[in-house]
């Protein structure tokens, strides 16, 4: 009888030891995973930045506009200079391209004589509407979100283009 009681006590002790340590481990590791894996809360909603005056744009002639945008990097907010190629398309819609070639990220430029964008690195050529004419570029030029308010062009988030 006494032997049995002592067996029960032992089992009870062992069950408690494992149970309590499981609770402690869970209560420490679960918050740690959440802390490490969840993205930071409340990033500033995509701020629109004023880039320039659209009334001076001539249809069919891209212009490189310089603007400052703030970037949130963890606990740091940095203000950095960015550029965009802004084009007034024939249907007078305004678009802004990211200044980097979609192939390997070189800076391309506007080739006035051929009326297209030329990347000096591997001679990717893009049309005025951003589509690939020739070269290794896998997809059209990436575009910034744009908004026109009066004469002002506002630039928003960069959107990655789909492969053509």
């Amino acid at each position: 009888m006494e032997e049995l009681q002592s067996q029960d006590r032992r089992a009870f002790h062992i069950a408690f030891i494992y149970g309590l340590w499981a609770v402690i481990t869970g209560a420490l590791t679960i918050p740690a995973f959440v802390y490490l894996l969840f993205p930071p809360k409340a990033k500033t909603a995509s701020a629109w930045v004023e880039a320039g005056d659209v009334t001076q744009l001539r249809p069919g002639t891209p212009e490189e506009m310089v603007f400052r945008r703030t970037r949130v990097d963890g606990w740091k907010v940095t203000s950095e200079k960015s550029t965009a190629w802004v084009v007034k398309l024939p249907d007078s819609k305004v678009v802004a391209y990211s200044p980097q070639c979609t192939h390997l990220g070189c800076a391309y430029h506007w080739d006035e004589s051929n009326k297209n964008f030329l990347c000096p690195c591997h001679t990717s050529i893009f049309a005025l509407d951003g589509t690939v004419i020739s070269g290794p570029a896998p997809r059209p030029l990436d575009r910034f979100q744009v908004k026109v308010e009066g004469p002002k062009l506002l630039i928003g988030e960069l959107e990655r283009s789909e492969p053509s």
Binding site: P31, A32, V34, Y35, F38, P40, K41, A42, G74, W75
Partner: peptide
């Protein structure tokens, strides 16, 4: 960075 931990990371203020 501590402020970032406490205010912006889920579980940061608990840790």
């Amino acid at each position: 960075s501590l402020k970032f931990i406490v205010t912006e990371l889920t579980g940061g203020s608990l840790i």
